[in-house]
């Protein structure tokens, strides 16, 4: 039961953190590019990689990993907004930006998750 309350509380904070970053103004003339979601998904991927790696060598407890990983980082990052923004970029015929968005989120985030895993495990990346 404790874990359920922990995940709910962490999910609450993760979603608010995502909302807060999304509300940061980027200034006049900023490109219509979903920078906030990109930053969130890439940073969240790195942090979850690190947490998962740290869990495998017992540096964090399974309960902490579940609350911080499934609760906070799971709610912080989002796949539904990613697809929604991708649809909006394509609707505006911004094909180049859409491709950049997919590659940075899907390949860049993947790479960051992999680096995070290695760092969490405390091994050289290889």
């Amino acid at each position: 039961m404790k874990i359920v309350i922990g995940i709910a509380a962490a999910g609450f904070l993760g979603a608010i953190a995502r909302y807060g970053i999304g509300a940061i103004p980027l200034g006049e003339g900023a490109e219509p590019f979903p920078w906030a979601t990109l930053f969130i998904n890439m940073s969240g991927s790195f942090l979850l990689g690190w947490l998962t790696g740290a869990l495998t060598r017992g540096k964090v407890s399974p309960a902490i990993a579940e609350v911080a990983g499934t609760g906070f980082l799971g709610a912080y990052t989002t796949f539904s907004a990613f697809n929604g923004q991708l649809w909006q970029l394509l609707e505006q015929d911004a094909y180049g930006l859409a491709a950049v968005y997919v590659l940075l989120s899907g390949v860049g985030g993947w790479w960051l998750a992999s680096i995070g895993l290695s760092k969490g495990r405390g091994v050289q990346r290889g």
């Binding site: 499934t70 990052t77 895993l117």
Partner: peptide
């Protein structure tokens, strides 16, 4: 519903860590 429930339901971090694993 959108930013809250759907944002919290879906995840990209787990997806990328699963791909790496």
């Amino acid at each position: 519903v959108g930013t809250g429930v759907l944002g919290g339901l879906t995840t990209y971090s787990t997806l990328n860590v699963q791909k790496a694993s």
